[in-house]
Nucleic acid binder design. Sequence first.
DNA 1: GATGAATGAGCTTTCATTCAT
DNA 2: TATGAATGAAAGCTCATTCAT
Lengths: 220, 220, 220, 220
Amino acid sequence: MSGAHSSHSHQSSDLKSATPRWTAKQKLVLETATRLFAQKGYANTSTSEIAKKAGVSEGSIFRRFKTKEGLLLTILSPVIDGILSNMLTETNRKAAILPSLKLRDFVTIIVEDRTEFIQKHIAVFKILIEEILYDNRIRLQIIKKIPKQLLTQISQVITSLHSRHEIVDWDNEEIMRFIGNNVLGFVLNYFILLDKSTAEIQAAQEHMIEFLTKGLATSD
Amino acid sequence: MSGAHSSHSHQSSDLKSATPRWTAKQKLVLETATRLFAQKGYANTSTSEIAKKAGVSEGSIFRRFKTKEGLLLTILSPVIDGILSNMLTETNRKAAILPSLKLRDFVTIIVEDRTEFIQKHIAVFKILIEEILYDNRIRLQIIKKIPKQLLTQISQVITSLHSRHEIVDWDNEEIMRFIGNNVLGFVLNYFILLDKSTAEIQAAQEHMIEFLTKGLATSD
Amino acid sequence: MSGAHSSHSHQSSDLKSATPRWTAKQKLVLETATRLFAQKGYANTSTSEIAKKAGVSEGSIFRRFKTKEGLLLTILSPVIDGILSNMLTETNRKAAILPSLKLRDFVTIIVEDRTEFIQKHIAVFKILIEEILYDNRIRLQIIKKIPKQLLTQISQVITSLHSRHEIVDWDNEEIMRFIGNNVLGFVLNYFILLDKSTAEIQAAQEHMIEFLTKGLATSD
Amino acid sequence: MSGAHSSHSHQSSDLKSATPRWTAKQKLVLETATRLFAQKGYANTSTSEIAKKAGVSEGSIFRRFKTKEGLLLTILSPVIDGILSNMLTETNRKAAILPSLKLRDFVTIIVEDRTEFIQKHIAVFKILIEEILYDNRIRLQIIKKIPKQLLTQISQVITSLHSRHEIVDWDNEEIMRFIGNNVLGFVLNYFILLDKSTAEIQAAQEHMIEFLTKGLATSD
DNA sequence: GATGAATGAGCTTTCATTCAT
DNA sequence: TATGAATGAAAGCTCATTCAT
């Protein structure tokens, strides 16, 4: 809830501030392209369709984004950067570093935070998955970022949980992978593949929190 | 009836038996196409490249498979059918129906079995994921099959585990989803994205079994 | 005159025989492209115009020639090869090696032979000149061929003239350059730039022969 | 030496004097465009590249030169005018009208003068050649100027040489063509195509003077 | 049945030019 | 005046598909 603010500020920093300020038309292109890429896949979306639906000329797209791939990267970059670097919203961050933090609280915080993040960027995530599967350049770009960013934020909390025997003694990266797989699988299942009621989704998320909490508890 | 037979017949029907017997060249086309689709994505693979690499003429591909999509479906169908219907191999099946089966044994059996299945068809799975994300027809085709097939095989074992209070009391479909997400995530991480040693992969699989066993245990 | 035969056989060997036999449509493309490139320049001729005027689809052009540049090279290659390697027609060749050959006869033979060659391939020559001026790859391709081929044919005759003090004692390459410049300049002036009567052209050619004969005579 | 002055004044008149005085940026555009046109050809040079490399906006180019062709003509015009009209530098002019002028001196003067002129404007000459070959408007513009300008300057000297039996009795235009072809061929060969040392170029120029002197001498 | 030349629609990209700021 | 975003026409090229041989 309260996390929405800082999370939002990140996205906006990518689209508004800094040197390259987008014109209204360019923003329209980015939104339209994101929507279409997510709907039909990057490869199946033509620049001419993007131009038409965004109400701009094709020339304008290429003037600003250089190539179709440039347009793709402009869309993906901020989310790729955000996946790990901005792991927690301001509020959650404070809670996560409490020395008395229990595993269940940690899992709850991170699941809710990441679910919200993925949901918010669900369109970009669909595009990202396709590219991870088939585009080596993008795949490498992502993998390269993992080690650096794992050493911050969440990882510190996990280390703290380790020291207090609150969590199973696998290494941080592997634990993050379990959490990541389940959160991503959850979002894909419930927000893309399946058509469930809000109540069912809510229940499923609670189950996931319980599942992760038990699964990651110390074995004894 | 018995699992072994039907399981085997299914897989083999893909490439060998039944009405449509593939010629050597056609089998080459299917293998080449599978490899290329998995490498570069369906949309980024041209029929002319498939023809060239398979050593046949483009005309021959279209004569036999009608369209490029026909070729795709010929590749995907058997695996789509196999995902749930042939859940267990002969040996595992016998073990799975023991009345004394423990949750840990169940998880071990199913994780090992499905990991092997996905690994064996990893190329097709990559293609399948892309199509699930972007092709509504294929997505629906898969979703339609879920309820029917859940009533068989594994589901019965889970029901049995339920009755013996060996497993958490969520419904079978949801439990399967947890297992599925983790197995699929495991394979994607360790066989596509990451580059780990056999020992590391082995350890990761054991961790996954422990993780699932604890996560799906009765809460108390 | 009689030389036309062997000269012709060269051109035809490029368009007919060997492994790649052109289809009727492909020959039409080559002829149309040659004409248009010569008329408007390579860069100013679009593949779509070639296709339209040749009565084929654009796809067919790219299927056979790979790229627009591939089409250009297909047109240029045989002429580039022919510029120096086939310096003399059969008949002229015989005359050129007579031990009693006078400078004037030599100049006459070579001027008539090369004028005929250039005239016959005038369209390709126009294209070639443009490419020599601006395309480094083609420029190098041509320059590379000069030394090898200078050692044959004409060069031997010049060496013979040298030994009999019939010709100025500059090196063969430089002498060939004087002849080449004047023949090429003659053709460009009288067949492209200017609009003169046959009689005037005939007179100009005779003047060129006299000019070259005197200019290349031993200084004494 | 002293010729350099008047020669220089010609070039500068192109860029400085007359009604349209170029701003610093406009001069930069003209120089950049000349360089790029000569390097890659007119058709292969985009206005956007010119703008970028000259450090001005594309809009500015079109504001001043109206169209891309306008820019081309602005570059070509002064050189087209200079080819024949300003045949000789001040000093050479004085020498050329001496009543005792020998053919060899005449050839020497004109070869050195024109070689210098072409060399100085070599970039524009490259552009010009392309346009002469393919652009009818420019071709006609040049041809139209020939007769008028032939009646002046050099032509008068040739007529004088004729009357003194110093030169072969072809008409002035044809004689000029021989000289022009050889000078142009010389510059193209030694300053664009080949990569020779200064000494070799010097020797080649002397050979050309001897070649032209002998070739244009009275036949008896 | 197998081939591969031929197709035409559509793709990404470039470019000269315009015009609001 | 100078800028550079925006344009639309056209460029080179790719591709799934057809069909005569």
